[in-house]
Design a protein around this nucleic acid. Structure first.
Length: 746
DNA sequence: GTGCCTCGAGTTCC
DNA sequence: CTCGAGGCAC
């Protein structure tokens, strides 16, 4: 059959018929997806159609239809590009917004490395191009693929498109056997304006134009779009390019890449700020958009010592230019209710263009932000509050999240009144309470509140939780409001198929649901009856219990039964903890001015120990809060959530529907210190304490502050004192710094 | 007690 | 992406 024939074997007539069929099939899939949000075919099948369409169009350009699906930018539910996993993660950078932040950045690096404030420290600085980052992998000098950043771990294969960019070489001379070059694809302002004037569609800004062009499924369209590329970094390498950032860039330049001509080496903060000024001055005449200046520690050995924080490297920062702002009218203030009951005020704006994006909503954070105070009660806009009807200045924080920066009080109407934050939930009418010390109002309706219930369900099916294919936020909204087959709690998802059968399978005849999509949905739900404990815990949506805490709890208890039993046992202690907290708060208010801290402590202890909490409860509680990363706040939240009869019954119904709750996998034990608890003492000479800790943790060790029976190694630097004595008493292995470094492999 | 550092929660637009 | 807050080290 012609539809399965290799593209190269198609006759022209066959190709023409195939394109017609594909256009129809893709259009049908688009309609099903967009109008009902319930696709008739899977993403993979859809991708295959788009890919085949693009391939045929490439081979027979003259046959390309006027309604070609490849022209319909943004119509795809997911695109036709293959995924590529980056062997070295593509980083994002921390931001600095003023000279003070840059000073902090430099000081932090010096502290971490143990350098004095006046020791020489060289940085490489270059403009931050406002485009999209790309990773180019070369093996034996040949381009193997070009991949977008994606989420930093996995990007999309856009090789064919990258090859249409003149500044991206297909082959290199004298390159390392493996070389991943990273840089920014961008479109110059002049090219952007020409494209918008002559092309079929208008883009909001050069960045969007570059992104849209690079993601074309048909490389010939990309070829017609004038894109450029600056190299600024590298990923996987078979051998180092050079010893410094600067020299590495020079090496890339000599291999044929374009590096930004405004790249400079700067000694110290003053030189960085001077170069920032120079770039800001040059900005209007560069001919391409930039949004700041990037500073990197020049010495690569130092970069490697500094290492990573959770998502950003310690050795680099982006010094951003002030964000673009725009003035518009704030038409009204709406309140949204989140899954934890938090009431979030949202500004509904007269749509306004901010830095190339049309903004119509902006977050107002909380009551204090609207009133013009920060969380400490200090004025943030010199007392100017935000009111409905006001003229407000909007900007996009980090160029993404719209926020209200300022208010023009002069344009305020005489009858305007300060915004009164609601004290009842707009969705369910329950009281919305702001606890002392908290910045947000919270609806007290719990699961009675429809807004909370539906948000919790959305969280339950979200990516890190049950992640059920075909059951996203949209479908949850729909099923929540459904009369015939409602989903009001997680267990309802798993009874859906049974209930549908009892209803003679009516689901499949409704909007957006055909035979196949219903079958696939039920299948996807059934697959999740077997679920990792971590996902189950995270999916419950208990406040303060996120993915990381869920992992820690799952590791510690190993099974749902063990965790639930522990939570039930710890309940009296958790209740007492809350009572003690209340007593402490009360006493603190009374003793505030006298500064009698001892009294506060005494008031707390009087409640905590009187009468002593049942020993078993106390033990369960201590065990719970003893877990690293679990404190009293999370512990109380977990225990009380599981103690709510309504909530617990709902969880039990869910568990009854699951077939298997799988325990977490044991931690990888590659390194000799993985899973070990280590303690540092004395003065380390080859690295600072922070560095040693980060290194140990990156190898899977747990770093503790004091020696106990659980300690595996004590690393004793020079002048070790009581800890070494205690370690000897407890029979803990004591090693010196050199032995430690040997153990972790240099 | 103070000051990181991370995690959790909420948010917007494409 | 940002803010607030929890947890923990100094």
């Amino acid at each position: 059959m012609a539809s399965d024939k290799p593209v190269d074997d198609l006759t022209e007539a066959e190709a023409q018929r195939a394109l017609a069929r594909l256009a129809a099939a893709i259009a049908r899939a688009n309609t099903a997806y967009h109008q009902a949000d319930a696709p008739e075919i899977s993403d993979a099948e859809y991708d295959a159609l788009k890919r085949r369409n693009a391939a045929i169009e490439t081979r027979f350009p003259s046959l390309k239809r006027t309604d070609s699906p490849s022209e319909q930018v943004g119509a795809a539910p997911s695109d036709g590009f293959g995924k590529i996993r980056h062997r070295v993660r593509m980083l994002s950078l921390a931001n600095a917004f003023d000279a003070g932040d840059v000073g902090d950045f430099d000081a932090g690096i010096r502290r971490y490395l143990g350098l004095s404030p006046d020791a020489p420290l060289t940085y490489a600085a270059e403009p931050k191009i406002d485009g999209l980052s790309l990773s180019l992998r070369y093996e034996d000098g040949q381009l193997v693929y070009a991949a977008t950043r994606g989420d930093g771990e996995t990007g999309e294969n856009v090789t064919a498109n990258a090859l249409t960019i003149a500044q991206i070489p297909q082959a290199l001379n004298g390159a390392p056997a493996v070389l991943e070059v990273r840089g920014e694809v961008y479109m110059s302002q002049a090219d952007f304006e020409t494209l918008n004037a002559t092309g079929g569609r208008t883009f909001a800004n050069p960045r969007n134009a570059a992104a849209g062009s690079l993601r074309q499924l048909d490389a010939e369209i990309t070829r017609a779009r004038p894109l450029s590329f600056f190299a600024y970094a590298w990923g996987d390498l078979s051998e180092p390019l050079a010893a410094t950032q600067w020299d590495s860039l020079q090496r890339l330049a000599s291999l044929g890449f374009t590096i930004n001509p405004l790249t400079r080496r700067c000694d110290g903060v003053a030189a960085l700020l001077a170069h920032y000024q120079a770039i800001e001055t040059a900005r209007p005449d560069l001919g391409y958009d930039i949004d700041g200046v990037v500073y990197k520690v020049d010495d690569l050995a130092l970069q490697s010592r500094l290492g990573m924080r959770s998502t950003t490297p310690r050795w680099a920062i982006a010094h951003k230019f002030p964000a673009e702002t725009a003035w518009t009218r704030l038409e009204s203030i709406d309140i949204q209710v989140g899954r934890t009951g938090a009431l979030s005020p949202v500004a509904r704006l007269k749509p306004v263009n901010v830095g190339g994006v049309l903004v119509s909503n902006a977050t107002l954070h909380n009551e204090d932000y609207i009133a013009g105070r920060d969380s400490n009660g200090q004025p943030i806009r010199e007392g100017r509050d935000i009111r409905e009807g006001d003229w407000v200045q909007v900007y996009r924080a980090g160029d993404v999240i719209p926020k209200v920066a300022d208010v023009d009080v002069g344009r305020r109407l005489p009858d305007s009144v300060p915004y009164v934050f609601p004290d009842i939930c707009p969705d369910c009418g329950s009281a919305a309470v702001r606890e002392p010390g908290d910045s947000t109002h919270r609806c007290t309706g719990g699961l009675v509140c429809p807004a909370q219930a539906v948000e919790k369900l959305k969280h339950f099916v979200s990516r890190g939780a049950f992640d059920i294919e075909g059951l996203g936020a949209r479908q949850i909204e729909m099923f929540f409001a459904d009369d015939l087959l409602p989903i009001h709690e997680p267990a309802d998802i798993f009874t859906l198929a049974r209930r549908d059968a009892a209803n003679l399978g009516k689901l499949k005849n409704r909007d957006g649901f055909g035979d196949r999509s219903v079958a696939k949905l039920f299948e996807a739900i059934d697959e999740r009856r077997r679920i990792p404990l971590t996902r189950l815990l995270f999916g419950l949506g208990i406040r303060h219990l996120g993915e990381v805490a869920a992992t820690d709890l799952a590791r510690h208890y190993g099974s749902w039964e063990a965790l639930a039993r522990a939570a039930d046992m710890a309940r009296p202690a958790a209740e007492r903890h809350l009572a003690a907290d209340a007593a402490e708060t009360e006493e603190r208010a009374r003793a505030a001015e006298a500064g009698r801290r001892a009294e506060v402590k005494k008031a707390r202890d009087a409640v905590w120990d009187n009468p002593p909490v049942d020993a078993a409860a106390r033990a369960a509680w201590d065990d719970l809060v003893g877990i690293e990363g679990v404190g009293a706040v999370l512990a109380v939240s977990l225990v009380t959530a599981l103690a709510q009869p309504r909530e617990r019954a709902s969880i039990d119904r869910l568990i009854g529907e699951l077939s298997d709750i799988t325990p977490p996998e044991a931690r990888a034990t590659d390194s000799a210190v993985a899973g070990k608890t280590v303690v540092f003492t004395g003065t380390l000479t080859r690295m600072t304490r922070a560095e040693a800790k980060a290194r140990a943790e990156s190898l899977g060790a747990k770093v503790a502050g004091s020696v106990s029976a659980k300690t595996d190694f004590l690393i004793a630097g020079e002048g070790a004192g009581s800890k070494a004595t205690k370690a000897a008493d407890l029979g803990v292995t004591v090693i010196d710094e050199d032995a430690w470094i040997a153990m972790i492999g240099g």
